[in-house]
């Protein structure tokens, strides 16, 4: 598994399913480009904050200070989140 694939796996399993407690959704249900908000997973704004906190916990990357446009873009899907983590040099916390 490449680094980005591992990052996507952590985002899906540890952040979206376990941290957000999406009990009725399985890792394999979440496609990389599924929208997280407004459709698809249907997350709400407080869950968005939990995703932000999860990124910091698992990869040590922060979203504070990014513009609203960038914020929306990074949180669009697992693919975008993973690309953001890679671009920020985030590492999977051991």
């Amino acid at each position: 598994m490449t680094d980005i694939e591992k990052i996507k796996q952590v985002i899906k399993e540890d952040i979206l399913i376990n941290r957000l407690e999406l009990e009725d959704i399985k890792v394999e249900d979440i496609e990389d480009n599924t929208p997280l908000f407004g459709e698809g997973l249907g997350l709400d704004s407080v869950e968005a904050l939990d995703v932000v906190a999860g990124l910091e916990q698992f990869f040590g990357v922060k979203l504070q200070g990014v513009s609203p446009q960038e914020f929306q873009k990074h949180l669009y899907s697992v693919e975008n989140l993973a690309q953001f983590v890679v671009a920020k040099g985030g590492k999977i916390a051991s």
């Binding site: 704004s45 979203l63 200070g65 609203p68 446009q69 914020f71």
Partner: peptide, 19 residues
Amino acid sequence: CWTLGESYLKMLGGGMSIP
């Protein structure tokens, strides 16, 4: 605090940013 901030950002319609 969160709902006050969100209601303001939603009124403006420019999207979310933190803090």
